[in-house]
């Protein structure tokens, strides 16, 4: 094992041990947080009994819709935008300030428009992610070497064929970065909106458990959520590394 990995595991273990000690010595009281071994026990009980599988599944489904739509629409928009310099120049200030705007502030508005359901949550997840995808794709397309574009022209590829066969494959590492961002934002958007106001879903259950001081439900659910998002992010990061290594950039 590499020293960095040992270091990482040591940090996590030390952190959990610290929490355990603080909880057992009652520095952190039971209402604030149960000791880590209780959380783990509740976590396994939750998994074994299959509690909240339905809610988790529903949330993940919404996350996936938000992620896929942000990714696909982002790529299409970015590719088209790259061809029209003027439109891109006009949109640039919007992209630059977009992430300063609290998108969650629009959630109430969306509830008013679409009603309280899956729609507004997916929309928030999509809105958070799509601009990151567009910006990353534009960044990638800017780096396509002239010679590739010329080759495409010599072979008389249509703009669509050029995008599918030449420029987008060249941007593969950027596509993965975009996917990573879109996935993280889809998570934040969907689970966050569920937490703010919803009728069901993982974020809603966490909020609900919080209001009822139901720590035996809240902490395992938070743990599950952290594990899912770190796991998904880990897969994409590993894939990104493989891709970069193949191109000799890592």
């Amino acid at each position: 094992m590499k020293p960095t990995q040992i270091y990482q595991i040591a940090i996590i273990l030390a952190f959990v041990a610290l929490l355990e000690v603080l909880c057992l010595t009652k520095v952190i009281d039971k209402i604030t947080m149960p000791a880590p071994h209780f959380i783990l026990r509740d976590f396994f009980l939750m998994i074994i009994h299959g509690r909240y599988f339905h809610e988790v599944g529903q949330s993940m489904f919404n996350v996936m819709i938000a992620f896929v739509s942000a990714f696909v629409i982002g790529i299409i928009t970015g590719t088209i935008l790259h061809a029209y310099r003027l439109v891109r120049d006009v949109m640039d200030p919007l992209f630059a300030t977009y992430y300063a705007i609290p998108v969650f502030a629009f959630y109430p508005l969306f509830i008013m428009i679409f009603g309280l359901g899956d729609g507004p949550q997916v929309l928030i997840g999509y809105m958070l992610g799509v601009v990151a995808v567009i910006v990353t794709i534009l960044n990638g397309l800017d780096r396509v070497p002239r010679v590739l574009k010329k080759t495409a022209r010599i072979n008389r590829l249509s703009p669509f064929q050029t995008a599918i066969r030449v420029t987008l494959p060249f941007c593969a590492p950027f596509l993965l970065t975009a996917a990573k961002l879109a996935l993280a934002y889809a998570f934040i958007g969907v689970i966050g909106s569920e937490f703010i106001m919803a009728r069901s879903g993982m974020g809603y259950e966490i909020g609900h458990a919080y209001t009822n001081f139901d720590n035996a439900t809240m902490y395992p659910l938070i743990l599950l959520l952290l594990l899912i998002s770190i796991f998904m992010n880990g897969i994409l990061t590993a894939w990104e590394k493989v891709l970069l290594a193949r191109r000799g950039q890592a």
């Binding site: 952190i28 209402i31 604030t32 947080m33 990573k180 993280a184 998570f187 934040i188 689970i191 966050g192 937490f195 703010i196 974020g203 966490i206 909020g207 458990a209 919080y210 809240m218 938070i222 959520l225 952290l226 998002s229 770190i230 992010n233």
Partner: peptide, 14 residues
């Protein structure tokens, strides 16, 4: 990249 909003209950309790 985790949705920090779900950590909010912990912060509120703390």
């Amino acid at each position: 990249s985790i949705p920090k909003i779900t950590l909010y209950p912990i912060i509120l309790l703390a």
